[in-house]
Design a protein around this nucleic acid. Structure first.
Lengths: 197, 197
DNA sequence: TTGTTATCTTGACACCGTCAACATAACGCC
DNA sequence: GGCGTTATGTTGACGGTGTCAAGATAACAA
């Protein structure tokens, strides 16, 4: 029996996540509607509601997935660095993820979920864990290279704010010039490095 | 003849901007609809279209206004600093504006206009002028205190990215804890200062 | 086999931005 | 003052959105 004619889809949950990501990349968060999504999945408008409580829940699921991706990238990077930790590499990796997955990044850190919407408990857990990991990663990179009386955690957070700020400027379309962006990011790294001894 | 019964409003343009700002502060960008706005102004749904081409144009007008406000704050701050320029003060002032007018800040620098929407020519002009001013202001603050071969403009941009990143984290609801935020912002300032000699 | 549950459907509702067509008032020119 | 033009405001309509309610269908368990 061909899939197209079956009453039950069979794998709608995953299909929805997949198609949602595709739609996200094609049209952005604001172009992602449940109705379009349902149509792409070959299913009626309200079918997705049997797999996600509402649109917010779907977006949270997407964000959770994205965190897993970024996590693995960061983790791989931190590991491969080994005893030659390099902040520049960390920043490059992070910026690359953000610029290559702008819509996912918006979901992960943007107001769509965190302010306008309501982050799922699961998303909160995953996100906070990731925040902690990035901070720890950055903290490890600056370990033992800070002036006394300087909290490594705070340095890590401030550094992350710098990187995040850059990401947002690019992602939100404020910085359009890619070359400019690269020069600024290099300077941002220099800024962070200058705080080390 | 009482205003309520007049066919022509008389001052709809300004009233719309005013009510839009109020609605913005109460319900956020995503809560601002032209229909609600029209109702608040005591006018029919489509009346606003005689004063703003579409919703995007209205948002751009709001953003333009907000830039004027932030501009005057920054300018006043830079002037009053005189020959005692202090980056910390600059950052505090900037953060204060952003946290006290989060929705305006979102419009000024957020994807709502710059990515999803289409910035008006006027907004572009005003915004780019402001960007330049902030950069120049920050550039002046670091003037003569940079290592050789360091572009003051790049430092200013990277510094601005740091501040902007902090603002976004707070505004978007990622950082909720205000105290945490303050500590991080202090560290951010220290980060920038550390790049100076 | 039969009842329960998961899944999917259509119908409906209240919003939204915006266009078209029409109504009213203000303004300028004779 | 009268009158056409323009600015402003109105209702009606269209397609889009998220989501609820009620019913249809299939899978699954007893």
């Amino acid at each position: 029996m061909p899939k197209a004619e079956r009453y039950h889809h069979g794998d709608l949950h995953d299909t929805l996540l997949q198609e949602a990501n595709a739609l996200l990349n094609e049209q952005g968060v604001e172009g992602l509607s449940l109705r379009k999504l349902a149509e792409r999945a070959g299913v009626s408008r309200t079918a997705p509601y049997h797999h996600f409580r509402d649109k917010n829940a779907l977006l949270c699921a997407l964000a959770t997935q994205a965190f897993a991706e970024l996590d693995s990238i960061i983790e791989r990077q931190l590991e491969s660095a080994g005893d030659h930790p390099d902040i520049q590499d960390f920043v490059i990796e992070y910026l690359e993820f953000a610029t290559e997955n702008p819509e996912q990044y918006e979901l992960m850190f943007g107001r769509t979920i965190w302010k306008s919407g309501t982050p799922t408990d699961e998303l909160k857990r995953v996100a906070y864990r990731s925040f902690r990991r990035y901070a720890e990663g950055l903290g490890a990179l600056v370990q033992g290279r800070l002036p006394a009386a300087t909290d490594p955690l705070r340095v890590a957070q401030a550094s992350w704010a710098t990187i995040h700020g850059l990401c947002r400027l690019v992602i939100d379309g404020v910085y359009v010039d890619r070359k400019d962006m690269q020069a600024v990011s290099q300077q941002a790294v220099a800024l962070i490095m200058a705080a080390l001894k």
